[in-house]
C-alpha cells in the first residue's frame, strides 16, 4: 500500500501526517517547533518511523513557514505555501466547504473556496499578530490556566465582557482592568474570544463573501470558546473537522499524492534522518552595505543550500563544501 507524508512546519507547532492512497490519516504527530525547525523535522520523522511501513512512502510534501528547510532535509516532492495546502485538504476532505477560518501560532488566514474546490479568494493577517494562537497562549500563561482548558472555561460564561480587540496590547490592558474590577474568569476569557474574532473578521473578512459551510481549522480551532465566538458573530454553524490541527500537513500530503503520479519516483530521503548530522550556519555577506544574513545548510560538511541574500550571489552560486 502506498503512503504519503505531509509535513507542516509552523512558527509554533510542527505537524507530521502519513496518509494512505485514499487520503485517510494513518498516523499524525504534533510537536512544538520551539524555534528549531531542523531538529523538529528530524524528531517528527523519527516518531513516524516507529510505526510506518518504510518502503511504502510514495511522495512527500512540505508546507508552513519552514517548508523550504523541511523540504530540503526530507527530500520533498512538493513544497507549497500554507494557503494552497489548507485549501487542498479542506476541499478534498470536507464536501461543501466554502469558507476556511484558519488560526495558527503567528498568522491567521481566511480562505474562500469556489464550488469547484479551488481557492477563490484569501486574506492573511498583515501587520499585527493580535488574534493568533501565540496571544491566546500568552494570556493563558499569564492567568495560570493550561491552554487546553481555556475553551471549556470560556464556555461557562453567562455574559462575556467587552475587551478591546484591535491590538494585543490594548486587549491585555483591558483584560487586566476588567479583572481588577472583579469580573469572573470565564466572562473575561469569553470576552477575549469575542474580541479576537472581531479582530479577525475586521482584518481578514472585509470585502469577503463568507458562505456555508464554514470550517474552522488550525491549532486554535481546538478552543471551544473561539468556535462559539465565531458562531455568535457569524450567526451560522462553524464546523471543526476531526484533523483540524494538522490540515496543513494533510494538504501537503495530498498535494504530494497529486504530484507523484504512477511511475514517478519520490525524492524522499528515508526515515533515518535523525541519524544524519544536519547543521545550519549563518554569516554576514560583506559584498555591499545590505549586509545580508546568509544561511547555509550543511550535512556532514557538504553544503546543501544557501539562502537569505538579495542579489543571488550565494543562493545561485555553485555549492562547494566548506565555502
Amino acid at each position: 500500500m502506498k503512503t504519503y507524508l505531509g509535513i507542516d512546519v509552523g512558527s509554533v507547532s510542527a505537524n507530521f501526517v502519513l496518509v494512505d492512497e485514499a487520503g485517510e490519516v494513518l498516523e499524525a504527530v504534533y510537536l512544538r517547533t520551539r524555534g528549531r525547525p531542523l531538529e523538529v523535522v528530524q524528531e517528527g520523522v523519527a516518531a513516524l518511523a516507529k510505526t510506518a511501513d518504510h518502503g511504502a512512502v510514495a511522495g512527500v510534501g512540505t508546507t508552513g513557514s519552514g517548508r523550504v528547510l523541511a523540504g530540503l532535509v526530507v527530500g520533498a516532492d512538493v513544497v507549497r505555501n500554507e494557503i494552497t495546502a489548507h485549501a487542498a485538504a479542506t476541499a478534498r476532505l470536507i464536501p461543501g466547504a466554502r469558507t476556511i477560518l484558519e488560526i495558527g501560532g503567528q498568522d491567521s488566514k481566511l480562505i474562500i473556496i469556489s464550488p469547484g474546490g479551488t481557492v477563490a479568494d484569501f486574506a492573511m493577517n498583515t501587520v499585527c499578530a493580535a488574534g493568533t494562537g501565540s496571544f491566546l497562549d500568552q494570556q493563558a500563561a499569564r492567568l495560570g490556566i493550561p491552554i487546553e482548558e481555556f475553551g471549556a472555561i470560556a464556555l461557562e460564561a453567562q455574559t462575556p465582557v467587552r475587551i478591546a480587540g484591535r491590538c494585543a496590547v490594548f486587549a491585555e490592558t483591558d483584560m487586566i482592568h476588567k479583572q481588577a474590577m472583579g469580573y469572573g474568569l470565564p466572562e473575561i476569557l469569553a470576552g477575549l474570544c469575542e474580541a479576537l474574532v472581531r479582530n479577525y473578521l475586521n482584518n481578514l473578512g472585509k470585502g469577503k463573501d463568507i458562505r456555508d459551510k464554514v470550517v474552522f481549522q488550525g491549532g486554535v480551532a481546538a478552543n471551544a470558546g473561539m468556535r462559539r465566538a465565531f458562531e455568535r458573530v457569524l450567526k451560522r454553524a462553524v464546523h471543526v473537522p476531526p484533523h483540524h490541527g494538522v490540515m496543513g500537513a494533510l494538504g501537503a500530503a495530498l498535494l504530494a499524492r497529486a504530484q507523484t503520479g504512477p511511475g514517478a519516483r519520490t525524492g524522499f530521503k528515508g526515515f533515518d534522518l535523525a541519524n544524519r548530522d544536519y547543521r545550519t550556519g549563518c554569516f554576514n555577506c560583506n559584498g555591499c552595505a545590505n549586509q545580508c544574513e546568509v544561511v547555509e545548510i550543511t550535512q556532514a560538511s557538504t553544503v546543501l543550500a544557501r539562502w537569505g541574500d538579495r542579489c543571488g550571489r550565494w543562493s545561485r552560486a555553485p555549492l562547494v563544501s566548506g565555502a
Binding site: 513557514s65 505555501n81 494557503i83 479551488t118 481557492v119
Partner: peptide
C-alpha cells in the same frame, strides 16, 4: 517569508 507565502498562494489561485 510572509510575502513569499502570499505571492505563491496568489499565483496558485
Amino acid at each position: 517569508a510572509g510575502l513569499t507565502t502570499r505571492l505563491e498562494a496568489f499565483v496558485d489561485m
